[in-house]
Design a protein around this nucleic acid. Structure first.
Length: 561
RNA sequence: UGUCCUGUGGUGUAAUUGGCAACACGUCUGAUUCUGGAUCAGAAGAGUUUAGGUUCGAAACCUAACAGGACAACCA
């Protein structure tokens, strides 16, 4: 009874507009009530977080509606594509946590079939070979306001078209001398309907089909038909393809495809504050050495985020929270940062690391003695075990954690004040020493043995400091990453300047950290929280002799000077 | 001086289809804490671009404005 009540009370979750369309289609039994999507990257660059949104959407929808999602490489332009990109894309999709099983397809798998379809259209009088140059075609296309002019080749005979198109395939003509165009309407207010090019001649080596072809289909011609051949029901793409949809449908219509027609639906791509997302700009950042490659932890690429320390779950979660709609959007990076903090807070081991060391000497602690304390690995996890932490007379604390003349609500150390050393004892600052430059160089404290961690002493203090044992801490390189741009909207620039003028000069600060010995067990890719500081991960640059840590994101700090 | 798309707190997304705007992030309080983290409790913040209209009732429907975006590669 009760359980029934509970299940009938299940929370009604609202659907985004895509889910509404899909649920409607299922109700009307379109495509037999099936849902089949695809993620269709062009292998000409690395995937970024915007693609991650699309991947999560397509695979997520398929999963939600018991359907399938294919991975399809849109490889119709051999001059810009390569296997290197194919491989990185495969890796990234897998890493994000999605599996396309054996359904890894390529638009190039369909070249032969596409060719047959083209012949069908030629025979129908719906496509023709045009011998104008690219410039002439462009000049005759008109503008959005002015209608175009018809090609002089537009009305040649079907048999001529057939034989010339065959000769195009056979390699009888040099690049750029002929194209196959759909015969639609040169006066259409939609530029894409003004006799769009279907095939161009390119004597180029293709990474999959080698030298089998010297004519290659254009996106508009290949995409919808590929969708149809794969049994795609919902072909989801970004807003800029909205104007292409009439052409997508026109090809399907003229091919006389009636059943199981794919439907193109557009959604708004992801934009992130303090970030640029276009492939061109990302390429420029890499090419111009503004960053150290595609997987630089400051890049919004999936490989960059991975190296930065983002987890697949955090990215999937993020994709879920940004939502799906048709209006253009700018997501605040704070949401992304929230997602990774949420994950890492729950799942990463705590570690103490000091980045600006200040020596602290506990004057009443026996010289030469070391004791082993125990620190919880993760206070968020009740099952979590502990790590051994050595403690002795000389330790390092953070320079920022001591002030000679503290302001009002300073909870840390200052002359005469008391704080707790995390996992250890409460100490009191008795005095300090300055060096020749007037900088504080050493602090002298006394500790209270009865306040040892775990002894539940009644003594209370306001602040708790992290620290490391001077004798055996690990010296490691730490790369402090920050936002790549100083401007929320990097593309907003002054006259004559471009987005690169908004680069943050301090997006990477390399420093040294002194870390508790337990960290020696961390391997490349491992994540941890440096207590009171932020989340870090071990960079693959780590060697036997030097560990390298990347800061993924800082901890929230409600003190902020 | 074209066609198409989109306008809801600071930012995103909802409002099950016409019943007086919800959730998340962010912000700000307070409690708590051996991380100024986390957690918990609470607050501020929109009357839905504007103007008309339909209706007992409109964020939703209609009309018109206004604003933003997309489209003129043999790129995808």
């Amino acid at each position: 009874m009760n359980t029934n009540e509970n299940s009938s009370e299940e929370k009604k979750v609202s659907l985004n507009f895509l889910e509404q369309i899909i649920e409607n289609d299922i109700k009307e039994n379109k495509s037999g009530g099936k849902v089949h999507t695809r993620f269709p990257p062009e292998p000409n660059g690395y995937l970024h977080i915007g693609h991650a949104k699309s991947i999560c959407l397509n695979f997520g929808l398929a999963n939600k509606y018991n359907g399938l999602c294919n991975l399809r490489f849109d490889d119709t332009n051999p001059t810009t594509e390569s296997v290197e990109y194919v491989n990185s894309i495969r890796d990234d999709v897998h890493w994000l946590g999605f599996d396309w099983e054996e359904r890894e397809y390529y638009a190039s798998d369909y070249f032969e079939k596409l060719y047959e379809y083209a012949i069908f259209l030629i025979k129908k009088g719906k496509a023709y070979v045009c011998e104008m140059t690219a410039e002439e075609i462009s000049a005759n296309r008109g503008t959005p306001q002015i209608p175009g002019k018809e090609s002089p080749w537009r009305n040649r005979s079907v048999s001529d078209n057939l034989s010339i198109f065959e000769r195009m395939r056979n390699g009888d003509f040099p690049d750029g001398t002929r194209v196959l165009r759909a015969k639609i309407d040169m006066a259409s207010p939609n530029m894409h309907m003004r006799d769009p090019v279907m095939y161009r001649i390119m004597h180029a080596h293709h990474h999959r089909t080698g030298d089998d072809w010297c004519i290659y289909p254009m996106y508009d011609w290949a995409h919808g038909q590929s969708d149809y051949m794969e049994g795609i029901t919902h072909s989801i793409c970004t807003l800029e393809f909205e104007v292409h949809r009439p052409l997508y449908d026109w090809f399907l219509d003229e091919l006389e495809i009636k059943d199981n027609r794919p439907r193109q639906i557009e959604f708004a791509r992801l934009n992130l504050t303090y970030t640029v997302m276009s492939k061109r700009k990302l390429l420029e950042l890499v090419g111009g050495a503004y960053v150290h490659g595609w997987d630089d932890p400051r890049m919004p690429t999936i490989s960059g985020l991975r190296r930065r320390g983002y987890t697949p779950a955090s990215l999937r979660n993020f994709a879920e929270r940004v939502g799906i709609a048709k209006r253009e959007n700018f997501i605040e990076v704070e949401l992304l940062e929230h997602c990774i903090r949420e994950d890492l807070n729950k799942n990463s081991p705590r570690t103490m690391a000091v980045m600006n060391p200040l020596k602290l000497i506990i004057t009443n602690y026996a010289e030469g003695e070391t004791e082993i304390l125990h620190g919880t690995l993760n206070p968020e996890d009740p099952e979590s075990s502990t790590r051994p932490i050595p403690f002795s007379r000389e330790i390092f604390i953070e320079k920022d954690d001591f002030m000679e003349n503290p302001p009002n609500k300073f909870f840390r150390l200052s002359p005469g004040s008391e704080v707790r050393l995390k996992y250890a004892y409460i100490i009191r600052c008795d005095s300090f020493k300055k060096d020749a430059n007037g900088e504080i160089s050493e602090i002298y404290c006394t500790y209270f043995p009865e306040t040892k961690s775990g002894m539940n002493s009644l003594k209370k203090v306001k602040g708790t400091l992290h620290w490391v044992n001077a004798a055996d801490c690990i010296k490691a390189e730490v790369r402090l990453y920050d936002r790549l741009f100083v401007n929320e909207y990097p593309d907003e620039t002054e006259e004559g300047k471009d987005f690169k003028h908004n680069l943050n000069p301090d997006s990477l600060v390399v420093t040294t950290a002194y870390i508790e010995p337990h960290a020696r067990s961390y391997k490349a890719g491992d994540k941890c929280q440096f207590e009171r500081t932020g989340y870090f991960c071990v960079d693959p640059d780590t060697t036997e002799s030097l560990m390298v840590f990347n800061r993924t994101v800082s901890l929230k700090d409600s003190w902020k000077k």
